[in-house]
């Protein structure tokens, strides 16, 4: 599913008809914020309510060699033997926009397999993570007070996608300051006035019930536009897939034609946009 290609498409098409049941919750935040521990505790709340849970935990692949060490799932150890909790580690594999597409397929398969809640965990840095988070019906952005100035440095984009902001490790001395900082940042954004800020201590379960309730509340409100947002997302995924396709085909294109376009663009004979248009027409099947 992560890899894509014909096989993945085949399976994906077959399961699509069975999707739409699961709620998809995104958890994002910088390393060290305690996401995995928070998710572990949140899963316990969901399991307490009898819900089946799947987790897709995204870890970055190394830009060199493409390898990865995927260690997040071990922090969700409480559920290591629970047959109703399915955890899958996903390496970002660094491909252009491909991550959001593969996560889309992974989530659909998890959905079709009958999970009630699907959690997508990403490291909250970089554009691709923001896109991945958009797959979620609800996006929870996790912060921790011990991260120094990171709260301030937090990517504006991440704040824009948050439906709920969590200050985890709220028992640490600077927690209140972090909460206040986040509140101040939200004040500056007109469309973000209703975002809840919750304090949690994942290691001793404090605030997890409240987080669960908040998520359920938002889910209830959004049930209606789920189908619409799925189609909106599909448009973007198609566009991304198309651009990747174009990228691959252009790479395989006879050098001379591209070289000529590159030369023209370099000398200012044509603009980059015009060169792109002509290149696209070259690869049209």
């Amino acid at each position: 599913m992560e890899t894509g290609g014909n096989a993945a498409d085949l399976i994906h098409r077959r399961v699509c008809a069975r999707t739409g049941h699961a709620a998809v919750i995104g958890f994002t935040g910088a390393p060290g914020a305690g996401k995995s521990t928070l998710i572990d505790a949140y899963i316990a709340v969901l399991r307490g309510g009898g819900r089946r849970v799947a987790v897709a935990a995204v870890d970055p692949s190394s830009p060199l060699g493409g390898g990865a060490i995927l260690g997040d799932r071990v922090r969700m150890r409480r559920h290591a033997l629970d047959p109703n909790v399915f955890i899958r580690s996903v390496a970002s594999r660094g491909h252009l926009g491909g991550l959001s597409e593969s996560i889309h397929r992974v989530v659909d398969v998890m959905d079709a397999a009958g999970h009630d809640v699907i959690i997508v965990e990403t490291v909250g840095t970089g554009q691709s993570e923001v896109e991945v988070a958009e797959i979620a019906d609800i996006c929870v952005v996790v912060n921790a007070p011990n991260m120094g100035d990171d709260v301030q440095a937090m990517k504006a984009g991440v704040l824009e996608i948050a439906d709920i902001l969590v200050v985890n490790k709220a028992d640490l001395p600077l927690a209140q300051r972090a909460t206040k900082q986040l509140r101040d940042m939200l004040k500056l954004r007109r469309n973000r006035q209703n975002v809840a800020i919750l304090e949690t201590v994942a290691t001793n379960e404090t605030g997890i019930d409240a987080l669960g309730t908040a998520i359920d509340g938002l889910l209830a409100n959004r049930a209606a536009d789920k189908r619409k947002s799925r189609e909106r997302r599909m448009r973007r995924l198609i566009a991304q897939a198309a651009s990747r396709l174009a990228h691959d085909r252009m790479r395989d294109l006879a050098d001379a034609m591209l070289d000529e376009l590159a030369h023209k663009a370099a000398t200012g004979e044509i603009g980059i946009a015009e060169a792109a248009k002509q290149a696209l027409s070259l690869i049209r099947p």
């Binding site: 060199l64 390898g67 047959p83 899958r88």
Partner: peptide, 28 residues
């Protein structure tokens, strides 16, 4: 193995056998 381009699922010690089986299944 990571540096050789593989995706490594790493766990701390003391995994039970059923936990390893579940992990192998879920992580393909």
């Amino acid at each position: 193995l990571r540096d050789a381009g593989m995706e490594v699922i790493y766990t701390p010690p003391w995994q039970s056998i059923p936990a390893v089986v579940k992990l192998v299944l879920e992580e393909d």
